[in-house]
Design a protein around this nucleic acid. Structure first.
Lengths: 169, 169
DNA sequence: GCCTCGAATTACGTCGATGTCACTCTCCGG
DNA sequence: CCGGAGAGTGACATCGACGTAATTCGAGGC
């Protein structure tokens, strides 16, 4: 939406991330990436697969989404719920990725900034709250890129390089 | 642990809840109750099954635990994680059920009282937090008992009858 | 333009968490 | 003491979310 990243028939090499690379960076298996792409959970936005032998191309933003999915899975959340959430998340996710928490309350999802809002939800809501700090998602992706492919680390937009110093692997 | 509720060979009729009843009150299918009992997730504490034709007997506390499980499932959490959590929960669950929140942070679980503690966990933790208010669990069980079987409603210990007024079904 | 390498695809298997259904056995009332 | 109702059991099927292995086919190097 900001750069010239509309679907191009031939993305420049080195632009975006291939399937295997993306899976490695995010920390999932290739099979998961493939399954997610086929079932429409995370479709590569630079280039989708067009048959055997073609290449998927994932944007940096795609990596963030995939990492968010993995974090939710690691937290014991079913993929089914993740699917529902991401419909909402994609519409409401802007550039302020690093300062927002995703809160899943039953069927609804909200993006909140402060912890006080969470306490509000806790007081009013009857059920379970699932909270994902998006800052950690970005930090983990950036750390993985730098560790695995330092050359392409420029994809992470500038100004957040300081928050990566915590990643250790 | 407080009353004389050790395993008795013949529990008095009307004491505790049978399998079908328990499932109805908690709001799960009988198959789920059965599966949970077989796999050791929630074992009826008054009388376990001893073969075809025998009867399971669930205590009120069992109902609370099952309702907690259902709430977590409804929130999109995998049963596998629930199993891990309940090992901890059973050890640390006291009479203050109505004022505590269960917080699942990765592999660890904690019981917290105030919302401030949750914000602390949010700031320090890297991953997802799952929060279950136990008060709502008790409220839902009590409401269901009163609506379905008002005669046996004395099983819910006194002093909480006021908190049931919110239940509507 | 061909050839190979790597990425996608297909086919098949698996495992957990149930739904369905027929069957068996215990308990309780008559 | 006997019969039926109801509760647990077993066998089988299902569905999502992958794992594994073999197969295919586009894309870039020569």
């Amino acid at each position: 939406m900001s750069r010239q990243e509309n679907q191009r028939s031939a993305p420049a090499p080195g632009e975006g991330y291939g399937g295997r690379r993306a899976a490695e960076i995010v920390g999932i298996t290739y099979r998961q990436l493939d399954y997610w792409a086929r079932t429409g959970l995370i479709v590569p936005s630079l280039a989708t697969a067009t048959g055997s032998g073609s290449r998927r191309r994932y944007s940096y933003r795609d990596l963030l989404e995939m990492r968010a999915v993995k974090s939710l899975l690691d937290a014991g959340i079913r993929l089914e719920l993740v699917r529902e959430v991401f419909g909402y998340l994609r519409e409401n996710l802007h550039e302020d990725v690093a300062s927002v928490n995703l809160v899943i309350s039953g069927k609804r999802s909200v993006l909140v900034q402060t912890g006080d809002e969470i306490i509000d939800l806790l007081a009013k809501g009857q059920g379970v709250l699932n909270i994902l700090p998006l800052a950690s998602v970005k930090a983990q992706v950036d750390a993985a890129i730098i560790e695995l492919y330092p050359a392409t680390a420029s994809d992470a937009d500038a100004g957040v390089a300081d928050s990566v110093a915590t990643g250790t692997a």
